[in-house]
Design a protein around this nucleic acid. Structure first.
Lengths: 125, 125
DNA sequence: TCATCTGTTATATCTGAATTATAACACTTT
DNA sequence: AAAGTGTTATAATTCAGATATAACAGATGA
């Protein structure tokens, strides 16, 4: 597990763990069926409480990324592409909403934003 | 003052006040030299503590939007639009770049992003 | 000058979220 | 049985945000 916890990120620890594991799943660093570290071992490794790790795992399970079995541990569920796309679309939506807030606050026109959008996305051609 | 405080916004009250006033300044609803409501009167109006309003005003002063004078009150400073806009455009650009990265990695088409963009920006009617 | 607006400061408290420590319990595997 | 898993309950801590209250200080107009 390649999880780095920052106090300056603004995100609570359990969310940082969540995100790191999601990233690992997206990038196939963690594959379907693979076991995650036990809550206690990861807690020891990160020098945090196992309850915090458990919270992260609970959220990941609720979101459909992993499955936890008492006495055994947690393992990665088959990637649900739709689910992943949902996640990514939600991330994008949050960015757009922030852009919307900024533009509204700063009197920046929709057209100006659209122009930047085109500029950056045209780059790939 | 047209400030609406929501408990569901996720933002602390003092930030909601900050944003509302920034928005009013950008939209010229509040003009240069104009007095803001006193900390106590706005606090009464919003049914919150004057300390919370003071915090919002303090942040606005630190950010260069208003000036507060003891015994008198707070008034709107001259807008430095170019500088502010430059900063805001840079913030927006960073968001768009993140969107670009996400969409590229997740195989989300430019059109899909564009659709979300329209959805969110059309909301304002 | 006095009353009454303004903002300022200090102290203490409350609340909720995040996090922790600890202990006891339950399931699985060897 | 032992040693690993996860689970649950309880209590405590920390921190940010927000509050209440009181006392202080500057501005202003009657």
């Amino acid at each position: 597990m390649n999880i780095i916890i920052t106090n300056s990120s603004g995100l609570p620890i359990f969310e940082q763990i969540e995100n790191a594991i999601k990233e690992a799943i997206f990038s196939d660093e963690l594959k379907e069926g693979e076991m995650l570290p036990s809550v206690r071992s990861l807690a020891n490794e990160l020098k945090i409480s196992f309850l915090t790790v458990k919270r992260a795992y609970d959220e990941l399970e609720k979101a459909g990324f992993i499955k936890t079995v008492q006495g055994k541990g947690s393992y990665v569920l088959p990637k649900n592409l739709d689910l992943i796309k949902e996640e990514k679309l939600k991330e994008i939506q949050e960015h757009i909403e922030k852009i919307y807030e900024i533009s509204k606050l700063s009197n920046i026109s929709k057209d100006e934003v659209n122009e930047m959008f085109k500029m950056i996305f045209e780059e790939e051609l």
